[in-house]
Write a protein that binds this DNA or RNA. Structure first.
Length: 492
RNA sequence: GGCGCUAUGGUGCAACGGUUAGCACGCGGCCCUUUCAAGGCCGAAAUACGGGUUCGAUUCCCGUUAGCGCUACCA
């Protein structure tokens, strides 16, 4: 995945995370939409790490971002490329702008250009300073003896327009665009310092022949600057598609305050990647119509940039959980098995005999029996532990709920012997045996059914009893029943 | 402050000039029942506000309001 490959399709897209944090939900959705579009168009997906800011960049985070993408099944065809290793390209481009008059050497102190949220110091007569046109752009250095930075020389007057697949034709007045920084001023012996975002993005998108820039709508207002840069570098701008932002329940931009915002947290909680993908795809996009359960292949087939919403959306964890249960319940069993296998390996309950043959069949039947009641993958190791291990404990709440009746120990003991003597072992045989016993003892079948469930799986909640007994096998069931009776007596 | 974007139930989407405004999550109720889920049925719940345009506006235009974004020698 590191070597550039020749592209068969002509669509080329990229996902360009900055390693200043983990892969968050919004980034994952951007990556997903790029990926869906690339795969559908038979195009090329490029991964580019935007690590030009040496101070904020944390190289160790790259690995987490890549593994998050891998977990979601979002693979790439070229890269990862690192901008920190491509500095010369950006410097050359900036100098080209300088040479053709579309950029200038700026000697102003940084504070002069500060605006917006950072404008406390830049206030002038109560007015917040915004667009700055300093004298440097006309070749008159504002300050002597300082090292210059390179700024883009935004045209005076006129408009910059571009087409966005999601937001349509968009235009900005050039007079509203500040002369943005291309290259920082140099430190020590450097001629110039680090390249800035707009420069490196545009240079790379040109160099990598990106055809569609699919990214968060927070970049919509940045786009005219980049369009101006494309022109200055004599390149044709790509097609833009800006995606609405993902917000927390309080309608603020999703952040750590909202709990889990990193995709790795969802992986660790035990969500199925395909369910997560399905959920994410439907946040800001819909195929039209009422279908919601869309597997990866469906998404690839139906995805359309034109169908992307322009409205910011709230991340709704309850809906994500619903998607997960849908996948747990409706996935072809063979697609679910490997995930459960992985979970059992993680928790140390896995046995090699379940890997193939009759063991695999048993494993498949058991998972199939369990899955309507599972919400997250780890439930297989915790709630359903008794299905995979003899080392399990009786849930105190289940005990309190279903072992109250003083007749229970005796009934369980009798049931054990009755089951042990059964000529055959299947659902109906167990059913009949239990009901016959209850009739003879004059108790309701429900009483013993519930008590038996607790005895053999340790839980108040489990699959239907007689199916559970079949899956567990006669030996286990009888053994657990025999153990339960004296245990109850001992406690009371 | 300036510029930009957005506005359908609590949430995610649908309806892209004509529907009793649809679906899903969540919520409430009922059914099923061997626990708990699942499933089935039913219910409460929305076009931000004000003007236009039109025979007719959720849909097109303008304004207001609100939210978000950008406004860094961050990305």
């Amino acid at each position: 995945m590191t070597e550039p490959t020749n592209d068969s399709g002509n669509v080329r897209v990229r996902f360009a995370p900055s390693p200043t944090g983990y892969l968050h939900v919004g980034g994952a959705r951007t990556a997903l939409f790029n990926w869906l579009f690339a795969r559908q168009q038979n195009g090329t997906m490029i991964l580019r790490v935007e690590d030009t800011d040496a101070e904020r960049n944390k190289p160790e985070l790259v690995e987490g971002i890549l593994s998050g993408l891998n977990w979601l099944g979002l693979n790439w065809d070229e890269g990862p490329f690192y901008q920190s290793q491509r500095t010369q390209l950006y410097v050359d481009a900036a100098k080209k702008c300088l040479a053709n008059g579309s950029a200038f050497l700026c000697y102003c102190p940084a504070e002069k250009y500060v605006g917006g949220d950072h404008a406390e110091d830049g206030t002038e007569g109560g007015q917040v300073r915004r667009v700055v046109r300093c004298s440097c752009r006309d070749g008159i250095p504002s300050t002597r003896g300082t090292r210059p930075a390179i700024r883009f020389k935004v045209p005076i007057g006129g408009k910059t327009t571009f087409y966005d697949v999601v937001f349509g034709d968009t235009e900005f007045s050039n007079d509203d665009i500040e002369d943005f920084m291309l290259l920082r001023s140099g430190q020590d012996n450097e001629e110039f310092g680090q390249p800035m975002y707009h420069l490196s993005v545009v240079v790379d998108d040109i160099d990598m022949r990106i055809t569609h820039v699919i990214r968060g709508a927070d970049h919509l207002s940045n786009t005219p600057k980049q369009v101006l840069l494309y022109r200055a570098l004599e390149a044709k701008p790509p097609i833009f598609a800006h995606l609405p932002l993902i917000l927390g329940p309080d309608r603020k931009r999703l952040s750590k305050r909202h709990g889990a915002t990193s995709v790795s947290m969802y992986r660790d909680e035990g969500f199925l990647p395909e369910a997560f993908q399905n959920f994410l795809a439907l946040l800001g996009w819909a195929p039209g119509g009422d279908v919601e359960f869309l597997r990866t292949s469906d998404l690839i087939q139906k995805f359309k940039l034109e169908g992307v919403s322009r409205t910011n959306g709230v991340f709704d964890k309850a809906k994500l959980e619903w998607f997960n249960t849908q996948y747990l319940q409706h996935l072809p069993i063979e697609d679910l098995l490997p995930q459960v296998e992985q979970e059992l390996k993680r928790s140390g309950l896995w046995k090699e005999e379940w890997a193939s043959g009759s063991g695999r069949e048993w494993f498949s039947r058991t998972v199939d029996l369990l899955r309507p009641r599972v919400r997250l993958l780890p439930d297989f190791s915790t709630w359903a532990r008794a299905f995979f291990s003899d080392d399990f404990s009786i849930d105190p709440a289940a005990e309190a709920k279903f072992w109250k009746d003083p007749k229970i120990p005796d009934l369980l003991a009798k049931l054990a012997e009755k089951l042990a003597a059964l000529p055959e072992w299947n659902h109906d045989a167990g059913d009949h045996a239990l009901r016959a016993l209850c009739e003879a003892e004059g108790v309701k079948a429900g009483l013993l059914i519930n008590a038996t469930r607790v005895a053999i799986v340790g839980q108040a909640v489990a699959p239907p009893l007689f199916d559970t007994m079949v899956v567990l096998g006669r030996d286990r069931v009888v053994k657990r029943l025999r153990a339960a009776a004296p245990a109850i007596v001992a406690k009371s």
